[in-house]
């Protein structure tokens, strides 16, 4: 079921691409004239969320299968074959099997979601994704009683991915969510950005987006989704468990052992970009905090 979550930002906030400044000026003018009341002010804070440019989103990426440099994915990911593409859905599901991208796209309703994206490295973006809720796909497969977690796996193709020739991580890249996190209406599978097909460097043809978790949880170019009873292994946790936990919820109060998570820098601000405070659950506290009621977020980092 699409459209369960209502964005406070609309399509009009995204397009036209070149009109950011104009819109800002109109907002400032409107506020000056007192046209926006108290309620409007609250919303205008959210409207301050200008989506990053297409260039920011598609040229500054972490996708280590294509290299560890930020511009490596944009340079190298063109070699990834995304058609045809099949996602295996297996484990504790009623309808296990190969789901072709065509099948998936036919069954799902694509909508747009403008989300904050916070990398564990303390930079962030605002991205207008196109996709559908993961819950819809899982319901299509039929989640069985007893399933508690969802495991994801990225494609592993040494011929197409220069980065996997070196063991930066234990390939293939794997990630996981608790079932309630996976079924949450904010959790989506993205197939596009700015209304265009998602570029390879951003995780084509289909990737996860979990906006209240650090970016590395949002696994790219997914080939397998497995419903499991036990907590699945996750790549960064395996590489360095002290630094990267299973949950990895954005939390300004729990630092990464090597750097502070209290603030972040929005990409695209140039050489003199100011840091901004990081928000609890990346600004989605109201929607997701209840998932972690009673949990020690410091212990479950």
């Amino acid at each position: 079921m699409a459209h369960r979550w209502k964005n406070t930002l609309t399509r009009a906030d995204v397009t036209p691409l070149s009109a950011y400044m104009n819109r800002r000026q109109i907002m400032a003018g409107a506020m000056g004239l007192g046209l926006i009341g108290a309620a409007g002010m609250a919303r205008s804070q959210e409207a301050e969320l200008e989506p990053n440019s297409w260039e920011d989103i598609t040229q500054y990426n972490n996708f280590y299968e294509f290299g560890t440099g930020k511009s490596d994915p944009a340079r190298n990911a063109h070699t990834l074959t995304t058609e045809p593409w099949t996602v295996v859905i297996d484990g504790l599901v009623d309808n296990p099997g190969d789901y072709s991208m065509d099948q998936i796209m036919e069954a799902m309703t694509i909508e747009e979601r403008i989300y904050r994206f916070r990398c564990v490295e303390a930079w962030s973006m605002v991205i207008p994704w196109n996709g559908f809720e993961l819950a819809d796909l899982l319901n299509l497969a039929g989640v069985q009683e007893g399933a508690k977690y969802v495991a994801f796996e990225t494609a592993l193709r040494p011929d197409e991915m220069p980065g996997v020739r070196f063991p930066t991580l234990d390939w293939p890249y794997v990630e996981g969510l608790r079932l309630d996190e996976a079924m949450h209406p904010l959790t989506m599978m993205a197939t596009g950005i700015y209304g265009k097909t998602i570029p390879n460097q951003n995780g084509a043809p289909i990737r996860l987006v979990v906006p209240w978790k650090y970016g590395f949880k949002s696994i790219k170019s997914i080939v397998r989704i497995t419903l499991t009873e036990d907590e699945p292994p996750t790549s960064w946790n395996q590489a360095n468990g002290r630094e990267y936990g299973f949950y990895s919820n954005v939390n300004p109060e729990v630092d990464h052992p090597r750097w502070s998570q209290a603030s972040e820098r929005l990409v695209g601000g140039g050489l003199f970009a100011k840091r901004q405070p990081t928000l609890m659950f990346n600004g989605y506290e109201e929607e997701v905090a209840s998932l972690y009621d009673g949990m020690d977020l410091r212990a479950n980092y």
């Binding site: 260039e55 040229q59 500054y60 930020k70 820098r265 990409v267 695209g268 050489l271």
Partner: peptide, 15 residues
């Protein structure tokens, strides 16, 4: 380069 985009979209870390 940092000022003109030659160091990528996030020039501070790059520099």
């Amino acid at each position: 380069m940092a000022q003109t985009g030659g160091l990528g979209r996030e020039p501070i870390n790059a520099l």
